[in-house]
Design a protein around this nucleic acid. Structure first.
Lengths: 147, 147
DNA sequence: GCGCTATAGTTGAGAGCACAAGCAAGTGTA
DNA sequence: TACACTTGCTTGTGCTCTCAACTATAGCGC
């Protein structure tokens, strides 16, 4: 119980700090950043919106609005899927990769600093293992449009 | 880095689940619940809004809106501070305590279940200790209106 | 007393999110 | 072919939160 309260508080406070940093310095929310990050790592820099939603723990509508914003700034664009006309890919653009690169440098530095300041390697592993048991913590791969 | 991603994902997913449960079964958001909980534990069931904000990791305006809602449902009421007329206490009402009691039973049961299913006593202590090192994780006491 | 700054709280505007409803396209069954 | 069901996505609505601007009170130095 107490652990959960700690997690909640720590997460809220830390996320807010990261979010503010990303927003002020690069004009990205933490979900914008995560979306660009996942797209950049996906095959051909593109993902189905459903998969992106699942990755970001957002609903489908949340992703629609998120991508609306990224699209209007030219960081992401749409692409059709040849085998399933319901699917609209989100594809990261060159501008998106550039912005991500810039944001990554400061963001990853902050995250790493936060953790490395407070935990040793072994503790970090332990923490990751423990938190990994919580529901929703598992990593999931992105799918192609034709399963 | 991976630990943080896990934490973020796990926290988001779990909080959402708890939130939905509280909202559907008792008409309270997780912050409503936490606010009532803190008020119920505070001396005379009352706190300054500033202190409540700090406890809940909200801004002052967030607390104003949160309490507006609780107040309109009669779960909380206002009280003046005799020694500082700027201060408006939030005081938990009898109805508030009753609602909190009902919500606590199911919420605490869910939280406890979540953790006890996944972690042993020792692991829980370890987790609490590790998470306690993160900024924002420290518990803070509530203040009276005349410091 | 007077000004100055700090603190408690509220309000308006706007962002980000979920939920529910809806449309379009795919799949299964007959 | 006709029908029902599922899936991917978008849109309307409402909630919660922040930030910035504001009022009112308190406390300090003079």
């Amino acid at each position: 119980m107490s652990a959960w309260v700690r997690l909640l508080r720590a997460h809220a406070a830390t996320t807010r700090a990261f979010n503010a940093e990303l927003l002020n310095e690069h004009g990205l929310t933490i979900n914008d950043f995560e979306a660009l990050l996942r797209l950049s790592r996906a095959e051909e820099g593109r993902m189905r919106r459903v998969d992106l939603a699942e990755n970001l723990l957002l609903t489908a509508s949340g992703v629609t609005r998120l991508l609306d914003g990224l699209e209007s700034h030219g960081l992401v664009e749409r692409a059709a899927c040849s085998s399933d006309r319901r699917v609209v890919y989100a594809v990261i653009t060159e501008a998106g990769r550039t912005r991500l690169q810039a944001a990554s440098e400061s963001h990853i530095a902050s995250v790493t600093e936060l953790f490395e300041q407070r935990f040793g390697d072994e503790e970090l592993d332990r923490l990751a293992e423990l938190l990994g048991r919580l529901p929703g913590a598992d990593e999931s791969a992105s799918e192609d449009c034709s399963p």
